[in-house]
């Protein structure tokens, strides 16, 4: 396996993308900027799922569980302790990491559909817990939360207004995304791909496959929790519907549409899903699911490597890690 350094063209494209994102508030109206913020946050969440689905070949249908734990942790800290964003993020990353460890311990022992169903089960159990634990979560009605602040203590440096929050979210996104990329490029990340491609061989080489799986499950969970924290800070609200089956499914669809095992694909896929749902919804009324389904089928048929596989075909971006289309189900 050759780990190629990103080509020059690729680096230019990356720079241009970051510059474009930095200038977005100048180019977009309030609503589009709001949407872009949501896309970045959801994209980070989907990218953390890609770590499992794409790189490790673990198809999770309950990744929203860890997003939800992070969201609730941030919401509760904001309501009961402090509005400070860093406190919220720390609580979110820690709690979702812990919950991922507790559930992942069981989940990584299973494979394929069993893994899929166990992750779904954990998400549904947390969903139900959120609905029934009224004194903590305020049940199905959900928790409105105060606006987050950057400064120490309450009220200092309020992240008010769409532009301020956008830049905050962009920085957070770049940190989270950079972290995921570093993990993928590290020996640890390459081991994960090795396990996905040939588990028996990695085992015979002396890798503790289960430990690797658990580790990546915790990392993915913690990053999802990070995204969950941002979600609450943006919408100032959390309810059990944030852990719903639909959230997990949409993230999975975003990963597949964008392209597995690319990270950037997950973000592109998220943008695509949001645009279909929010931009085309006026054109297709309430039938955006139909459109999404058709696009999804088209991608599975024609672009097994997703949207981000398109430029690779034309040689614009060199893949860091060449991946085969199918993980193991």
């Amino acid at each position: 396996m050759r780990a190629l350094a990103p080509g020059r063209a690729a680096r230019l494209v990356q720079l241009a993308l970051v510059a474009l994102l930095a200038m977005a508030p100048l180019l977009l109206g309030d609503f589009r900027l709001f949407l872009l913020t949501e896309i970045l946050i959801f994209g980070l969440f989907a990218a953390s799922l890609d770590l499992l689905v794409g790189y490790t070949g673990l198809l999770s249908l309950g990744h929203a569980a860890y997003l939800g734990v992070g969201s609730y942790a941030t919401a509760l800290i904001a309501i009961h302790l402090t509005d400070n964003v860093f406190a919220g993020i720390a609580a979110a990353v820690l709690s979702s990491g812990v919950v991922a460890a507790a559930t992942g311990w069981l989940a990584v022992r299973t494979r394929g559909v069993y893994f899929l169903m166990l992750t779904l089960a954990f998400a549904q159990l947390l969903f139900t817990l959120a609905i029934t634990w009224d004194s903590l979560t305020h049940g199905a009605n959900g928790l409105p939360t105060p606006k987050p602040t950057l400064g120490p203590g309450d009220g200092g440096g309020a992240l008010d207004g769409g532009t301020a929050f956008y830049y905050y979210a962009l920085v957070a996104f770049l940190i989270g995304f950079g972290l995921l990329r570093a993990i993928v490029a590290s020996p640890f990340g390459r081991t994960l791909v090795g396990i996905r491609e040939n588990e028996a061989r990695m085992r015979s080489l002396g890798y503790g496959v289960a430990r690797y799986r658990l580790a990546v499950f915790c990392i993915a969970g913690a990053v999802a929790g990070f995204a969950g924290s941002l979600t609450v800070q943006h919408s100032n609200y959390m309810s059990p519907s944030g852990i719903s089956f639909e959230v997990s499914t949409l993230a999975l669809i975003a990963v597949i549409i964008g392209g597995r095992a690319t990270l950037v694909g997950a973000v592109l896929g998220s943008a695509f899903v949001f645009i279909i749902r929010d931009e085309l919804s006026s054109a297709f009324n309430e039938h955006w699911r139909l459109v999404l389904g058709v696009v999804f089928i088209g991608v599975v048929y024609l672009l097994p490597r997703g949207l981000s596989g398109l430029p690779a075909r034309t040689g614009l971006l060199s893949r860091r890690i060449q991946t085969t289309a199918g993980g193991s189900a």
């Binding site: 669809i253 139909l290 389904g293 999804f296 089928i297 599975v300 289309a325 993980g327 189900a329």
Partner: peptide, 27 residues
Amino acid sequence: PIRHRGHLDQALLTLGLAFVLSDLATI
């Protein structure tokens, strides 16, 4: 057309179909 690909792709295709079919049912 995707019989030769992995199980995952086949399952994903049926997921897309599920979206389409359930919306058609609503229509």
